[in-house]
Design a protein around this nucleic acid. Structure first.
Length: 795
DNA sequence: TAATTCGCTAGACCGA
DNA sequence: TCGGTCTAGCGAA
């Protein structure tokens, strides 16, 4: 019988001592389980004498935990290796240890790879894409990928729980309510309901806590993707534990299992069999790593604000309990629960296409890709290609090798010292995808380096290594494929009118961009299977070479180069030069660049400012530009840093704006004076004084107790739970001697209790002084009344 | 518990 | 209480 569906999830189980793959497939209207009993785990070995080794392997009795077993098959395979099959993954693991007892075996390969990933790659399947199964009574005879439009039913949920202390403990504290959000087909809109035991808006009333869990379970059943915000560590483990306490089961898995909690260091990964658990918190972490979003904190309120610009109200744990007890503010609590669930749904929904595409490209399930690192993704992609090209992929490095790799240090990009001051008519040029384009254009790959044939060829790096011109490198050939496909998709995107198709095309090209940019890092990452220090070294050597060449040529053309960082050149156009001259220059450069390397014009800016450091030389990585539409671009300054107070950041922004937009340093000075006055008068609100900083290691292991550590320590004494990874918001109060003494967690500080001296001298003034100094003013002009200088910017 | 290096700044820490 | 050094965090690319 033929069945078509969408592949949601897979796992492997042991059945009659055999490993069996189970696929969770969305067919017509439900999720069904299909078993594949014909796929055996395997690994490869290399041997001195294959014939003899095969005979020995076949005859070998391996010692299992319970009984002896044999390999089911051993045969000659790719690259002169021997492929050995086993009944189960447990057999394979045992055999892996004992295989070295056979003489003449020199090497083991492809043994450290997850069985389910193996299955997807070998069968050429893509999670969240279509599959066609030839089956009998749910047992798979054959399977293949087909292209299908993915239409899935999502459901998000969010729990509110009771707590006498700061944190709820599932052993004692009940679930008060659970919001669920899903797409309502009747109204074609999102619908959110709150399952709870007290009446109110949008409430789905039940009698007791146990029924909340059961109702939630009922709501989840029939959906295809389960969305939470930090469900990995909170909502799912909590619901599971409460169910146990209340003598019921939270068995939402398609196979009737409960959520499976796997400890992953400090965090959990919680899996639901058959229904991919899509944790929006994990998603947001990934997006932040790839620079897609930028946020100070990772709680839902901050994230919603940074993605959608919407201010969502937060209710603290203790208030939830108070509201529940008194009933006062109950509607607010309902709204809070409602919004948590709805925004969680929205974030996950909006970024689902991107994650789905990353999953398809790297052959990872949604659950996996949702918790995957950049190196994971590149590695899976490479392994997949390796399989397609019938090659053996490299082993993971052992710990000794990893340590050796860490010892090596790599020189990075070139940063040019800026010319400090105010500049006008700036053109910013930059290389399009610098690292990938260097890798592709110079064929940089671990196996093309220093080949026999091309020592004096085109691809000799500035530091001496060279790369083959005859044989295409493994890594760059994949990058080229991605690049070409991406260009094609972007062209299609331009023509496409249908919004849904546009979303999907855009997600695909974005996924490719992310992967493309991760190759270089993977090459230089110590745990990489395709590690090549010398290759990575060549990439950066070339990057330095090319960007310096651009600067040199720009100067030869009569431009002044005012700055450059890694892949960019900021050039100042003298009066005699036009925009066309800049574009012609770019064009000319591109004629000489090799392969796919390309210089682009990022934009024209009417003004820009670079400042000096304390020691007097110009500061790199901090500047501000204003374009022709008066749009500011502020880089590196305190304004973009979370470890500065709002009052300092906002004042700095205003100063930059006044100076760049209107060329009025005098106005800027007035502005700063005004802020200083308000600070002195105690008028500044708490929220503008908070400084955020992360506790990056265990609180006891600090040598230097800075303000954030000090505030954290005090808060811990008061019963707050703060650990590695916590982001602290603190305020410098009037109570104490040193800055650290005065530092206190924001929530413990009364409105108005702040050290105005600190905020003036250590926050506002340092944030603006370097900028106004460029106009001939100094600190005295900010504190004293009179104006010391009358220099004007454009006078 | 998983990409890299370059660069800036603050504030503690320490010895004179 | 000073100045130099070191620890720490965060951002740019």
């Amino acid at each position: 019988m033929k069945t078509k569906g969408i592949l949601l999830d897979l796992d492997s189980i042991q059945e009659n001592e055999k490993s069996v793959i189970r696929l969770f497939v969305k067919t017509e209207n439900r999720i069904e389980i299909f078993k594949d009993k014909n796929f055996s785990p395997y690994f490869y070995v290399k041997a001195l004498d294959n014939k003899k080794a095969i005979k020995d392997i076949i005859e070998k009795e391996f010692e299992g935990k319970e009984k002896k077993f044999k390999a089911i098959k051993a045969e000659e395979s790719i690259e002169g290796s021997i492929k050995i099959y086993f009944n189960s993954t447990t057999d394979l693991v045992e055999a892996l240890q004992q295989i070295k007892e056979i003489s003449g075996i020199t090497e083991k390969r492809e043994y450290d790879f997850i069985f389910t990933s193996r299955y997807l790659i070998d069968k050429g399947l893509e999670p969240l894409n279509g599959i066609e199964i030839e089956e009998e009574e749910k047992e798979i005879n054959s399977i293949k990928k087909i292209e299908t439009e993915t239409e899935l039913n999502f459901i998000a949920f969010d729990l509110e729980t009771y707590s006498e202390t700061k944190f709820s403990d599932a052993k004692f504290d009940p679930i008060l309510m659970s919001a669920v959000t899903f797409f309502d087909k009747k109204t074609n809109k999102l619908k959110t309901e709150i399952i709870t035991t007290k009446k109110g808006s949008n409430v789905l009333l039940v009698k007791e806590e146990k029924e909340i869990i059961e109702k939630l379970k009922e709501k989840i059943q029939g959906k295809d993707v389960l969305i939470t915000y930090n469900g990995d560590s909170f909502d799912l483990p909590y619901a599971k534990e409460r169910a146990r306490k209340l003598k019921t089961r939270f068995d939402i898995g398609i196979d009737g299992s409960e959520p499976l909690i796997r400890r992953k260091g400090l965090y959990n990964a919680t899996r639901v069999k058959g229904i991919p658990h899509f944790d929006a918190y994990q998603l947001v972490r990934i997006l932040a790593r790839f620079g897609i979003i930028n946020s100070i904190k990772y709680d839902l309120e901050t994230i919603v604000n940074s993605i959608y610009g919407i201010k969502k109200e937060k209710i603290k744990a203790e208030d939830i309990t108070r509201i529940w007890k008194t009933g006062e503010g109950y509607e607010k609590l309902l709204k809070y629960n409602y919004e948590d669930s709805e925004y969680t749904y929205k974030i996950a929904f909006d970024f689902f296409p991107l994650m789905a595409e990353l999953g398809k490209l790297t052959k990872q399930t949604l659950f996996e890709v949702n918790r995957s690192s950049a190196s994971d993704m590149v590695e899976k992609l490479l392994i997949n290609k390796s399989f397609q090209e019938k090659k053996l992929f490299p082993n993971k490095p052992n710990e000794t090798e990893i340590k050796k790799r860490i010892m090596q240090s790599l020189k990075g990009g070139h940063v040019r010292e800026p010319i400090a001051g105010l500049h006008e008519n700036i053109a910013v040029l930059d290389f399009r995808s610098l690292h990938p384009s260097i890798m592709i254009s110079h064929n940089i790959s671990p196996e093309t380096i220093n080949c026999k044939c091309c020592k004096n060829g085109k691809h000799v790096s500035p530091e001496g290594n060279w790369f083959c011109e005859n044989k295409k490198g493994f890594l760059p050939s994949i990058q080229k494929e991605l690049l070409d496909k991406r260009t094609e998709l972007k062209n299609e995107l331009k023509k496409e009118k249908n919004e849904l198709k546009k979303t999907s095309l855009n997600a695909r090209q974005h996924a490719m961009k992310i992967l493309l940019n991760s190759f270089y890092g993977y090459l230089a990452y110590e745990r990489s299977r395709w590690y090549s220090f010398e290759s990575a070294k060549a990439v950066t050597a070339w990057s330095r070479y090319y960007i310096k060449e651009i600067a040199k040529k720009a100067e030869e053309q009569g431009f002044t180069v005012i700055y450059g960082d890694t892949d960019s050149a900021f050039i100042k156009m003298p009066k005699t030069k036009t925009k066309k001259d800049v574009l012609d220059f770019v064009k000319k450069i591109n004629l000489d660049l090799p392969g796919v390397m390309e210089l682009e014009l990022e934009g024209f800016f009417k003004r820009g400012i670079f400042v000096t450091k304390k020691e007097g030389t110009a500061a790199k990585k901090r500047y501000a530009l204003i374009d022709e539409k008066d749009k500011l671009k502020i880089v590196g300054f305190e304004y973009v840093r979370r470890d500065w107070s709002g009052i300092a950041k906002n004042t700095q922004k205003k100063v930059i704006e006044l100076v760049l937009k209107e060329g009025k340093p005098e106005k800027a000075i007035q502005e700063v004076k005004k802020v200083i006055k308000e600070l002195k008068e105690g008028k500044i609100q708490k929220k503008d004084l908070v400084i955020f900083s992360q506790i990056k290691k265990s609180i006891g292991s600090y040598d230097a107790i800075g303000p954030h550590v000090s505030a954290a320590k005090k808060a811990i004494k008061k019963g707050k739970s703060i650990g590695t990874g916590s982001i602290i918001g603190y305020i410098i109060t009037r109570n104490g001697k040193s800055i650290s003494d005065k530092s206190e967690l924001e929530e413990f500080v009364e409105e108005g209790n702040y050290d105005s001296e600190y905020y003036i001298k250590n926050q506002v003034i340092p944030a603006v002084i370097k900028i106004i100094q460029e106009f001939g003013y100094d600190e005295k002009d900010l504190i004293l009344g009179g104006k010391q200088s009358s220099l004007s910017a454009f006078g």
